[in-house]
């Protein structure tokens, strides 16, 4: 499954971006199946906007985004849900956990939303890998940002996917934890032959990226 951006530019940022050169905005971009893509973007260049457009939580843009050669605007309702359950997973910058559910319930939700990809014990083992076993039965709202971020990472890995879209997924983690999380994500992507799109402020060498873009 390819992701294609054709002359995409967010309407509110149109004037600001049209004068700036970018690898993504207002360009033809093709993310091919299985590519590991890093998008470097300084603050205020629309990093989160891009992620939201690519994942269809924002619609206020010109141009078209295609999932598997189909205009994302035309993918709706149950079809969109099916793709989000089977093909495209996401880690939001603002994490988006259900504050009232425990960390475990947040992860479990994504595990059982579709035909489970992993057995239940995968939650335990990933939590152990990322060092969040102790907060699993704590309400997500009471966890620290670093813990919440790791929970969000584990949640995104509970489902089958061909693409993992990540928006500054390590922003609240220290070096050691970033290393563990990146290793886990890389292994999960390899296992599924999946590609990912990762946005971050700076350059890094967390993964063996196959393509770099500047926003």
């Amino acid at each position: 499954m390819n992701i294609q951006l054709q002359k995409v530019i967010p309407v509110p940022l149109k004037d600001k971006f049209s004068s700036r050169s970018s690898h993504i905005w207002n360009q033809q971009v093709l993310f091919t199946d299985g590519e590991w893509i890093k998008i470097k973007a300084p603050s205020g260049t629309g990093k989160t906007t891009l992620i939201n457009i690519m994942y269809k939580v924002r619609y206020d843009y010109e141009g078209t985004v295609q999932w598997n050669s189909k205009d994302l605007r035309e993918i709706k309702g149950d079809e969109l849900a099916m793709l989000r359950q089977q093909k495209v997973s996401v880690i939001f910058q603002d994490l988006r956990l259900f504050a009232n559910l425990t960390a475990r319930e947040n992860i479990e939700l994504k595990r059982v939303m579709q035909q489970p990809f992993y057995e239940k014990d995968a939650i335990e083992s990933m939590a152990a890998t990322l060092g969040v076993t102790h907060v699993l039965d704590q309400r997500a709202g009471t966890c620290s940002y670093g813990e919440q971020q790791r929970i969000a990472i584990i949640r995104s890995l509970m489902q089958p996917f061909k693409w993992l879209i990540m928006d500054e997924p390590f922003s609240h983690l220290d070096k050691e934890n970033i290393k563990r999380a990146a290793t886990l994500i890389a292994a999960e992507c390899k296992q599924r032959n999946a590609g990912f799109v990762l946005t971050d402020l700076d350059e890094d060498d967390h993964f063996e990226y196959s393509n770099f873009y500047n926003l």
Partner: peptide
């Protein structure tokens, strides 16, 4: 908000 987040995470309207 909860329903919107559920849909964002991939819960289908039918579910």
């Amino acid at each position: 908000h909860e329903i919107q987040l559920l849909i964002t995470l991939g819960a289908s309207p039918r579910q």
